[in-house]
């Protein structure tokens, strides 16, 4: 089965109405920023690690007039790509359909290919349910410090990865993105982390867990509680900078631009 990402991306240039743009940006975030986090989950969460270790499959999500992503599970390792073949292809007739599914509404994909890999699909469903739990946790979940730390890391990875999508597609963020210069921004929570790094290279944003040597910009968040509040959109970042809850160092212009992109992410991903 050949599914080239370019085919599915063909409508980018035809975005018109604000509602179309909103659905498309959100769909891109779901596929490129949220979904690949199942691979991070397999690194962070013991139960997810066990599930992923049994998987040797590629699963693609294809949206008509929208994004395409293939997730590769290789017995504990893996990756996400925007083009190429997949063993299983799940089709969504529209961005809105995909977004409804991610929003928890009754919207299911159409299996185009690879339905016989139903055991892998079951495993994937378990992974995605676990990811949902981390990204939309209950108060009881958050009482566990380990859970909270993983929630913060996964949420930061989602938020930063989603910056690329607003930079590419959100009309206002595009204006900010044109002024983005190359560099690395390291987000750290306290001394013990988590640490997450975003990289801008030739205008494209990528994210990865962990620290990098000599980042262009360092954004140090006071602690996990503060990071949770930041993720929930409860923080005035300028005030927090002055109060020392966020410690900025390095290229603050890059931090400022990323802050504007991050603010836009919250308009699409709740």
């Amino acid at each position: 089965m050949i599914l080239a990402g370019g085919f599915w991306d063909a409508s980018i240039g035809r975005l018109g109405r604000p509602a179309d743009t909103r659905e498309r940006v959100t769909a891109n975030m779901h596929l490129y920023a949220v979904l690949p986090r199942v691979l991070d989950l397999a690194r962070l969460d013991d139960a997810a690690t066990g599930i992923a270790r049994d998987m040797d499959v590629s699963i693609a999500f294809a949206v008509r007039g929208g994004p395409y992503v293939a997730l590769d599970f290789k017995r504990g390792s893996g990756g996400a790509r925007r083009t190429g073949l997949a063993d299983v292809v799940l089709f969504f007739p529209s961005c809105r359909h995909l977004n409804r599914m991610f929003g928890g509404e009754k919207a299911t994909p159409i299996p185009l290919w690879g339905l016989h890999r139903f055991r892998d699909l079951q495993r994937f469903t378990k992974l995605s349910d676990r990811l949902t739990q981390y990204l939309k946790p209950s108060d009881d979940d958050m009482a566990d410090p380990c859970f909270r730390k993983r929630h913060v890391e996964l949420s930061l990875l989602v938020g930063l990865a989603a910056c690329r999508e607003v930079a590419d597609l959100d009309p206002r963020a595009q204006r900010v993105a044109t002024a983005l210069h190359d560099g690395t921004i390291q987000y750290s929570v306290g001394e013990e982390g988590p640490h997450v790094t975003a990289k801008v290279e030739h205008g494209t944003i990528s994210v990865a867990p962990g620290r990098v040597p000599d980042p262009t910009t360092t954004i140090a968040l006071r602690d996990l509680d503060f990071a949770v509040a930041l993720i929930r959109g409860e923080v005035d970042t300028f005030a927090a900078s002055g109060l020392g809850d966020i410690r900025l160092s390095g290229d603050l212009a890059l931090a400022d631009k990323f802050n504007h992109l991050f603010d836009r992410v919250g308009l699409y991903l709740k």
């Binding site: 005035d236 300028f238 005030a239 900078s241 002055g242 109060l243 020392g244 900025l248 603050l252």
Partner: peptide
Amino acid sequence: LFERACKVIPGGIPGHTSPAFAVAG
């Protein structure tokens, strides 16, 4: 004073004089 400001002024000190753009602390 900045703590007081943050309660009643968005960002505490808005604009180009925000501590976020200098060396906070």
